[in-house]
């Protein structure tokens, strides 16, 4: 793949475009790297500190000032607050409700009802509500 590099004077001007015939694992890895979604997050499992690969995260929930990180079939506790994780994870991890951050790459589909409530079905068939007030930001993350 041909790669261009151009130096800019301001971080707000940083921008990457990847043109590929298909979304391969390599392309996904490159996107993860550029968007800061690669790497690991320190979490707690049964009292032990472990590093959780960010790509395994489905969603994050805040309950009674505690933060829980959910993967396909596991749950971990995390010492970070939701707003800190929002900044740390960035990329396709988007706030979807006051107490939730969802990994957009783990969403199977979304569906709105007449009341404006948007429901997302994740790859493990769990359902997460997306509050209407966060839809604009989610669309921005998805380049819509």
């Amino acid at each position: 793949m041909h790669v261009d590099y151009e130096q800019v004077d301001d971080s707000s001007k940083e921008y990457a475009v990847i043109k590929a015939t298909e979304m391969t694992e390599n392309v996904k890895s490159a996107i993860d790297l550029l968007m800061g979604t690669s790497g690991c997050l320190p979490v707690i499992k049964e009292g032990s500190n472990i590093l959780l690969n960010k790509t395994r995260i489905y969603y994050i929930e805040s309950v009674d000032k505690k933060t829980f990180v959910y993967t396909k079939d596991e749950c971990f506790e995390c010492k970070y607050r939701l707003y800190e994780l929002e900044e740390m994870l960035g990329g396709y991890f988007a706030r979807c409700a006051k107490a939730f951050i969802v990994n957009l790459r783990k969403i199977k589909s979304i569906n709105s009802d007449l009341s404006g409530r948007m429901e997302s079905v994740l790859l493990n068939d769990e359902k997460i509500i997306i509050a209407r007030s966060y839809v604009k930001e989610i669309k921005r993350r998805l380049d819509i």
Partner: peptide, 8 residues
Amino acid sequence: AAIDKIRD
């Protein structure tokens, strides 16, 4: 449609 493109 946008999610389809990035879904794991």
